[in-house]
Amino acid sequence: MNRVPLEGKVLSENARVAAELRERFREHRLPVLNIISSPGSGKTTLLEKTLESFSPSERVAVLTGDLQTENDANRLKRYGFPVKQITTGGTCHLDARMIEKHIADWDLEKLDLLIIENVGNLVCPSSYDLGEAAKIVLLSVTEGEDKPLKYPSIFFKSELMVLTKTDLLPYVPFDVPAAIENARRVHAEMEVVKVSCLTGNGMHEWLTWLERRKHAFLAELAHLVG
């Protein structure tokens, strides 16, 4: 018997497609963000407020995933930007093939930002790379502040944690510093933004983060080319 060392990553079919997508997004200088949270943490509401704040000249598009219904796409289409619903039929996450299929008739050259709203689920979406530049995780203050420890995978892989529904903080026992500490235990560099879509508090910080992330993506590309 002979044991030989084997090197390299084990790549799944999804990882292969995601790598192709990432390459395409880079070619088109298109930053892509993948937003993930439990059902009901406020992904669609945050996106509504985000699209509402953009000027009509903003070149942004949204893909929104759910098991069934076009409801979220209908909510988001009102702002006049290209929006497509991905209904998974029962699958609990979006995968790279679904993204590939749904952007097929979009001219990526005409976009400066693509936001993907994943299916509400903190588990499976964390294992499916969609070719995005960054993952963003939402945690609403009506959830437990120990969620980063219970579902570490997605917090480990996300660059930003958005604490949502902060207008409810006076009425719920949510411990903000503990939630942030827990997230940073899993991911030391985790950035945090606190937002209330109801009052608009923190929206400025969120939009500033978005802008900064877009620039960081382009700067990274320039560096790669240079």
């Binding site: 030989v4 060392p5 084997l6 390299g8 990553k9």
Partner: peptide, 18 residues
């Protein structure tokens, strides 16, 4: 302290009969 790894998915070795 900080978490530095945990999402690896990689080959380690192969045992063969020759």
């Amino acid at each position: 302290a900080e978490c530095i790894s945990g999402d690896e998915l990689e080959f380690a070795y192969l045992e063969v009969e020759e």
